[in-house]
Amino acid sequence: MSPRRQIIHIDMDCFYAAIEVRDRPELRREPVAVGGHSNRRGVLTTCNYEARAFGCHSAMPTFQALQRCPHLVVLPVRFDVYRNESRRIRRIFRDYTELIEPLSLDEAYLDVSHHTRPAASIAQEIRSRIRQTTGLNASAGIAPNKMLAKIASDWRKPNGQYEVKSSDIGSFMQSLPVSKIWGVGKKAVARLAEHDLHTCGDLQKQSRLELQQLFGKFGSELYELCRGIDHREVVSNRIRKSMSCERTYSKDLDSLEDRQQHAADIFQELSHDLARFKSDRPISKLFVKCKYSDFTRSSIERSGLPFQLSSFQDLLDESYERRSDPIRLLGLGVRFLDPEAQMRATQQLEFDLG
């Protein structure tokens, strides 16, 4: 890891909810959420800090959020507006670097290693310009690598920034909870806790071999990550390989009929997103994804199927035959033909015809 690397992670504060409050000034200082309707199947997409003070959070069923905060203002999602604001923000990024890796509409990595200016100064200027241009607040993390930059961006939220310098990585990592490590989710945290491993300092006491014996291949990654070592590059212009839409339900879907009914709504959303994507890349496969009530996942995909609702319904039939347990998440998606594979196919066709 070169100490000259300067990575900035920009993370917008409560992006969707912040846009709604900006556009509706009367909602300032009110608890606001964006997401599903106030029925038992609606789910919050995000909420502002006023709502979080009542214990509301993203992915929470709307009815539960309203129980915790009866005066919560729940607004419908306006993706077109959010995408437009995201494009405005990325235009600001491009004034500083071409090495931009978006993670979602509201966050991105920027590699500014080529600048002679300190990255912290650049991050401050970017945040100020975002505020002036959009009226929205952004937080930033600055570090020599992506993992540390992302952790740091959460350190001074909202509307703040934090820098982890190369010389401070050792002390910064010692007391850091293992949950902050890239790739460590709730199940991994629980498994680490079984071995009395709670902080990165705890992990650093283990040898690489010991971690490999406990966690397999990921154990070797943990050995480096707990020391703040992350070699991943900021990847710009990433070729999109797939597109999907999914929904999580507060009440499990028990029957095949329930899945088919909700699949129709998800298909409409996916069709809309594909139309906006405006890509001429052919679809190579369709897939459906299910998460069951025990949080296990399964997916099934097929090539050669036309992009239409009946194709996804056929896949759902097959998925249900394999496992009919209730599901809490349903997703539909497509995979695009790899550009190189498409080129090889074209060349082969030209060869055959020639």
Score class of each variant (00 low, 15 high):
residue 2 S to Q: 12
residue 2 S to G: 09
residue 3 P to E: 07
residue 3 P to C: 04
residue 7 I to C: 05
residue 8 I to R: 05
residue 10 I to L: 15
residue 11 D to P: 01
residue 11 D to I: 02
residue 14 C to W: 10
residue 14 C to T: 12
residue 18 A to G: 05
residue 19 I to V: 15
residue 21 V to K: 07
residue 21 V to Y: 04
residue 26 E to W: 03
residue 26 E to K: 11
residue 29 R to H: 14
residue 29 R to C: 08
residue 31 P to S: 10
residue 32 V to G: 00
residue 35 G to F: 13
residue 38 S to L: 11
residue 39 N to R: 05
residue 39 N to I: 00
residue 43 V to R: 01
residue 44 L to H: 11
residue 46 T to L: 12
residue 46 T to F: 11
residue 47 C to S: 08
residue 49 Y to N: 12
residue 51 A to K: 03
residue 52 R to E: 09
residue 53 A to S: 10
residue 54 F to C: 08
residue 56 C to T: 12
residue 57 H to Y: 15
residue 59 A to K: 04
residue 60 M to C: 02
residue 60 M to S: 02
residue 63 F to P: 00
residue 64 Q to P: 00
residue 66 L to W: 08
residue 67 Q to D: 08
residue 67 Q to T: 09
residue 67 Q to R: 15
residue 70 P to T: 01
residue 71 H to S: 12
residue 72 L to H: 02
residue 73 V to D: 00
residue 73 V to K: 13
residue 74 V to Y: 04
residue 74 V to W: 06
residue 76 P to H: 04
residue 77 V to N: 13
residue 77 V to R: 10
residue 78 R to G: 01
residue 78 R to D: 13
residue 80 D to S: 14
residue 81 V to E: 13
residue 82 Y to V: 03
residue 82 Y to E: 06
residue 82 Y to W: 13
residue 84 N to M: 09
residue 85 E to P: 00
residue 88 R to E: 13
residue 89 I to Q: 03
residue 89 I to A: 03
residue 91 R to S: 13
residue 91 R to T: 09
residue 91 R to F: 01
residue 92 I to W: 07
residue 95 D to M: 12
residue 95 D to S: 13
residue 97 T to S: 08
residue 99 L to M: 13
residue 100 I to G: 07
residue 102 P to C: 11
residue 103 L to Q: 10
residue 104 S to Y: 09
residue 105 L to W: 13
residue 105 L to S: 04
residue 107 E to V: 06
residue 108 A to E: 05
residue 112 V to E: 09
residue 113 S to L: 06
residue 113 S to W: 03
residue 113 S to C: 06
residue 114 H to Y: 11
residue 114 H to T: 08
residue 118 P to V: 04
residue 120 A to P: 01
residue 120 A to E: 14
residue 120 A to N: 07
residue 121 S to W: 06
residue 121 S to G: 10
residue 123 A to K: 05
residue 127 R to P: 04
residue 128 S to L: 13
residue 128 S to F: 13
residue 129 R to H: 11
residue 129 R to M: 11
residue 130 I to Q: 01
residue 131 R to Y: 14
residue 131 R to D: 08
residue 132 Q to P: 02
residue 133 T to M: 12
residue 136 L to V: 11
residue 140 A to S: 10
residue 140 A to T: 07
residue 142 I to C: 05
residue 142 I to S: 00
residue 144 P to I: 01
residue 145 N to P: 01
residue 147 M to R: 02
residue 148 L to P: 01
